[in-house]
Design a protein around this nucleic acid. Structure first.
Length: 299
DNA sequence: CAGAACGTGTCAAGGCAGGA
DNA sequence: TCCTGCCTTGACACGTTCTG
């Protein structure tokens, strides 16, 4: 092994700032020293990791991006090993960046983090919410180590572990003519205006439900906000289909919504923890996984 | 233990590209 | 064309490790 952890740390910093001089200032070393370290790393690997743009900073090569993912993971393990050495026999500690699909976050993260804090008080979690594409990209770039996601159309470079499944429901205002029904078929909604939760992957999932039922939904509004979907439904702008049910049927503006089971056969959505395939989790991420399993599987 | 070798840092100078 | 910003290279310093 020719490279050093210091070189990896330098590379991660340069990639982060896109500029050798800026990275050097943050690392408290001189710019030539940093430039030399990166050059030595590239030389030992035999692969260019950065593209130098004279007077315009640097960018990461495709090979460099793949290498960075592994480098960040390795640095995470190295950090953990250092902490382990300092506190042999002590509990899980350090920092963990957890990604989460934006609509899942408010439903589960507050309680998950509370449980995690109770089990591992020395573990400090940083959150990175986003759409599924963003969450996946962060995992593949090594910016997050583990994420809570819906298991739909995920990148094949990610490994997932299913935690639970959630069934889709029709959402209508409490004064809607279907609100008193115990179930509803999607065909009964064919002429009703729909409010679509318009997030990548989610929109395709909702459309597939209607496609399988042979129904073409009349989309009245699209929004990327889960709560705006509920708000619009609560004020009678249309119905929606959602998988997650908040404990309160009140919307932000005081409207009231009703969740009704769907009569048609539907595909449940799997909630899963995702991580880059082939990368060994740190003990911190393992601790988060264990808390998720207890939370979802054991109740 | 002393000198050589090595690794890693700084400073200074030079080259390149973009912008005024 | 000149200025500015930024990267690379060369010379050198200093601390650590290796070797006889």
């Amino acid at each position: 092994m020719q490279y050093t952890l210091k070189q990896l740390r330098y590379l991660v910093a340069v990639a982060q700032y896109g500029n050798v001089s800026v990275a050097a200032r943050h690392l408290f070393i001189s710019q030539p020293a940093l430039s030399t370290a990166i050059a030595q790393l590239e030389s030992s690997l035999g692969v260019p990791l950065l593209i130098r743009h004279h007077a315009r900073g640097v960018s990461v090569t495709p090979a460099g991006r793949k290498f960075l993912t592994r480098a960040r993971s390795l640095l995470g393990h190295a950090n953990e090993l250092e902490l382990l050495g300092r506190e042999l026999g002590d509990s899980v500690r350090g920092e963990l960046i957890v990604g989460c699909f934006v609509t899942l976050a408010p439903f589960f993260l507050p309680r998950l983090l509370k449980e995690l804090q109770r089990s591992h008080p020395q573990l400090h979690v940083h959150l990175a919410e986003g759409a599924l594409d963003q969450v996946q990209a962060a995992l593949l770039a090594g910016e997050t180590e583990i994420s809570l996601v819906y298991d739909i159309d995920l990148d094949r470079q990610l490994a997932t572990e299913e935690l639970t499944r959630v069934r889709p429901h029709v959402l209508v205002a409490s004064n809607h003519h279907l609100a008193t029904h115990s179930t509803v078929s999607l065909s009964a909604l064919a002429t009703e205006p729909m409010i679509l939760l318009d997030l990548p992957h989610s929109r395709d999932y909702f459309r597939s439900l209607f496609f399988n039922a042979g129904v073409e939904p009349v989309i009245r509004h699209r929004t990327q906000s889960f709560e705006l979907v509920r708000g619009l439904v609560g004020q009678g702008h249309g119905y929606s289909v959602l998988n997650l049910q908040p404990r309160s049927n009140r919307t932000y503006d005081g409207g009231r919504v009703i969740y009704i089971p769907i009569e048609d056969p539907t595909t449940d959505l799997a909630i899963a923890i995702a991580r880059p395939r082939g990368l060994q989790l740190t003990h911190r991420a393992e601790a988060f996984s264990a808390v998720c399993r207890r939370f979802f599987v054991d109740g």
